[in-house]
Protein backbone atom coordinates (compact mmCIF):
# COMPACT_ATOMS: atom_id res chain seq x y z
CA UNK A 1 0.00 0.00 0.00
CA UNK A 2 1.13 3.50 -0.74
CA UNK A 3 2.03 5.45 2.39
CA UNK A 4 2.62 9.19 2.12
CA UNK A 5 4.22 11.05 4.97
CA UNK A 6 5.87 14.32 5.76
CA UNK A 7 9.20 13.36 7.26
CA UNK A 8 11.40 16.09 8.68
CA UNK A 9 9.55 18.61 6.56
CA UNK A 10 9.87 16.66 3.33
CA UNK A 11 7.07 14.82 1.57
CA UNK A 12 8.05 11.19 1.22
CA UNK A 13 6.19 8.13 0.05
CA UNK A 14 6.78 4.43 -0.30
CA UNK A 15 4.81 1.43 -1.42
CA UNK A 16 5.03 -0.96 1.51
CA UNK A 17 3.23 -4.17 2.52
CA UNK A 18 0.50 -3.50 5.13
CA UNK A 19 2.44 -5.36 7.84
CA UNK A 20 5.32 -2.87 7.62
CA UNK A 21 5.97 -0.92 10.78
CA UNK A 22 6.74 2.77 10.63
CA UNK A 23 10.25 1.95 11.89
CA UNK A 24 10.86 -0.50 9.07
CA UNK A 25 9.55 1.94 6.49
CA UNK A 26 11.76 4.74 7.80
CA UNK A 27 14.86 2.55 7.93
CA UNK A 28 14.45 0.39 4.87
CA UNK A 29 12.31 2.35 2.46
CA UNK A 30 13.27 5.92 3.27
CA UNK A 31 16.89 5.24 4.27
CA UNK A 32 16.52 7.00 7.62
CA UNK A 33 18.46 4.64 9.89
CA UNK A 34 18.67 7.03 12.83
CA UNK A 35 15.77 5.38 14.67
CA UNK A 36 16.97 1.96 15.83
CA UNK A 37 15.51 -1.44 16.39
CA UNK A 38 16.45 -2.44 19.93
CA UNK A 39 13.76 -4.69 21.34
CA UNK A 40 10.98 -4.58 18.73
CA UNK A 41 8.29 -4.62 21.44
CA UNK A 42 8.12 -1.02 22.62
CA UNK A 43 10.20 -1.36 25.77
CA UNK A 44 13.60 0.14 24.98
CA UNK A 45 12.72 3.37 23.17
CA UNK A 46 15.51 3.29 20.56
CA UNK A 47 12.85 3.55 17.83
CA UNK A 48 11.26 6.72 19.25
CA UNK A 49 10.09 9.26 16.68
CA UNK A 50 7.67 12.16 16.93
CA UNK A 51 4.38 11.80 15.05
CA UNK A 52 2.13 14.87 14.89
CA UNK A 53 3.85 16.30 17.95
CA UNK A 54 3.78 13.18 20.13
CA UNK A 55 6.69 10.82 20.69
CA UNK A 56 5.92 7.17 20.16
CA UNK A 57 7.48 3.76 19.48
CA UNK A 58 7.77 3.47 15.72
CA UNK A 59 8.27 -0.30 16.08
CA UNK A 60 4.70 -0.61 17.35
CA UNK A 61 3.02 1.61 14.78
CA UNK A 62 2.06 0.36 11.37
CA UNK A 63 3.31 2.58 8.57
CA UNK A 64 -0.28 2.56 7.31
CA UNK A 65 -1.39 4.38 10.45
CA UNK A 66 1.18 7.08 9.85
CA UNK A 67 -0.22 7.84 6.41
CA UNK A 68 -0.74 11.58 5.95
CA UNK A 69 0.94 12.49 9.20
CA UNK A 70 3.98 14.52 10.08
CA UNK A 71 7.03 12.66 11.40
CA UNK A 72 10.16 14.04 12.99
CA UNK A 73 13.11 11.69 13.32
CA UNK A 74 16.57 12.27 14.74
CA UNK A 75 17.70 13.23 11.24
CA UNK A 76 15.34 16.20 11.40
CA UNK A 77 16.57 17.58 14.70
CA UNK A 78 19.51 19.65 13.45
CA UNK A 79 19.15 22.31 10.80
CA UNK A 80 21.69 22.72 8.04
CA UNK A 81 22.99 25.71 9.98
CA UNK A 82 23.18 24.42 13.50
CA UNK A 83 22.78 21.55 15.91
CA UNK A 84 19.72 21.44 18.14
CA UNK A 85 20.60 22.58 21.69
CA UNK A 86 19.93 19.04 22.87
CA UNK A 87 22.47 17.64 20.43
CA UNK A 88 25.01 20.18 21.62
CA UNK A 89 24.48 19.49 25.29
CA UNK A 90 24.39 15.71 24.82
CA UNK A 91 27.71 15.93 22.99
CA UNK A 92 29.38 18.38 25.35
CA UNK A 93 28.25 16.73 28.57
CA UNK A 94 29.12 13.23 27.44
CA UNK A 95 25.55 11.96 27.53
CA UNK A 96 26.17 9.59 24.63
CA UNK A 97 28.56 6.69 24.98
CA UNK A 98 27.84 3.81 22.64
CA UNK A 99 25.20 6.10 21.17
CA UNK A 100 22.64 3.44 20.32
CA UNK A 101 20.00 4.84 22.66
CA UNK A 102 20.84 8.39 21.54
CA UNK A 103 18.41 8.94 18.67
CA UNK A 104 15.44 7.71 20.71
CA UNK A 105 16.63 9.43 23.85
CA UNK A 106 17.01 12.75 22.02
CA UNK A 107 13.56 12.48 20.47
CA UNK A 108 12.01 11.80 23.88
CA UNK A 109 13.95 14.73 25.27
CA UNK A 110 12.76 16.97 22.45
CA UNK A 111 9.17 15.85 23.00
CA UNK A 112 9.55 16.77 26.67
CA UNK A 113 11.14 20.18 26.11
CA UNK A 114 8.57 21.04 23.43
CA UNK A 115 5.87 20.63 26.07
CA UNK A 116 7.79 21.62 29.19
CA UNK A 117 10.86 23.77 28.54
CA UNK A 118 12.13 23.73 32.13
CA UNK A 119 11.50 20.25 33.47
CA UNK A 120 12.50 19.13 36.95
CA UNK A 121 14.71 16.07 37.40
CA UNK A 122 11.61 14.11 38.36
CA UNK A 123 9.82 15.19 35.20
CA UNK A 124 12.83 14.26 33.08
CA UNK A 125 12.99 10.80 34.63
CA UNK A 126 9.28 10.37 34.03
CA UNK A 127 9.64 11.46 30.41
CA UNK A 128 12.53 9.06 29.83
CA UNK A 129 10.95 6.03 31.47
CA UNK A 130 10.47 4.52 28.02
CA UNK A 131 14.10 4.96 26.96
CA UNK A 132 16.72 2.57 28.21
CA UNK A 133 20.43 3.36 28.30
CA UNK A 134 22.94 0.75 29.43
CA UNK A 135 26.10 2.88 29.34
CA UNK A 136 25.62 6.22 31.05
CA UNK A 137 23.56 5.51 34.14
CA UNK A 138 21.34 8.40 32.93
CA UNK A 139 22.99 11.08 35.09
CA UNK A 140 24.64 12.86 32.21
CA UNK A 141 21.55 12.52 30.06
CA UNK A 142 19.48 14.26 32.71
CA UNK A 143 22.10 17.01 33.05
CA UNK A 144 22.20 17.47 29.28
CA UNK A 145 18.42 17.82 29.04
CA UNK A 146 18.38 20.39 31.83
CA UNK A 147 21.20 22.24 30.13
CA UNK A 148 19.42 22.30 26.77
CA UNK A 149 16.18 23.30 28.47
CA UNK A 150 17.88 26.30 30.04
CA UNK A 151 19.33 27.29 26.69
CA UNK A 152 16.01 26.94 24.91
CA UNK A 153 13.98 28.84 27.48
CA UNK A 154 16.72 31.48 27.68
CA UNK A 155 16.52 31.90 23.93
CA UNK A 156 12.74 32.12 24.11
CA UNK A 157 12.97 34.86 26.74
CA UNK A 158 15.28 36.77 24.44
CA UNK A 159 18.37 36.48 26.64
Amino acid sequence: MLVKLKVNGELRQADVPPETTLLKMLREDLGLTGAKLGCDVGDCGTCTVIVDGDSLNSCLMLAAKANGREITTIEGLATSADLHPLQKSFEELGALQCGFCGPGMLMSAKNLLDKNPEPSVHEIKDALSGNLCRCTGYTKIIEAIQDAGRELSGAAAGN
Partner: peptide
Protein backbone atom coordinates in the same frame (compact mmCIF):
# COMPACT_ATOMS: atom_id res chain seq x y z
CA UNK B 1 34.51 14.97 24.50
CA UNK B 2 34.03 11.77 22.60
CA UNK B 3 35.23 11.92 19.02
CA UNK B 4 32.12 10.08 17.87
CA UNK B 5 29.66 12.04 20.01
CA UNK B 6 28.65 14.39 17.21
CA UNK B 7 27.53 11.67 14.82
CA UNK B 8 25.77 9.78 17.60
CA UNK B 9 23.72 12.88 18.35
CA UNK B 10 22.91 13.43 14.71
CA UNK B 11 21.76 9.84 14.26
CA UNK B 12 24.37 9.43 11.56
Amino acid sequence: SRPDGRLHGLGQ
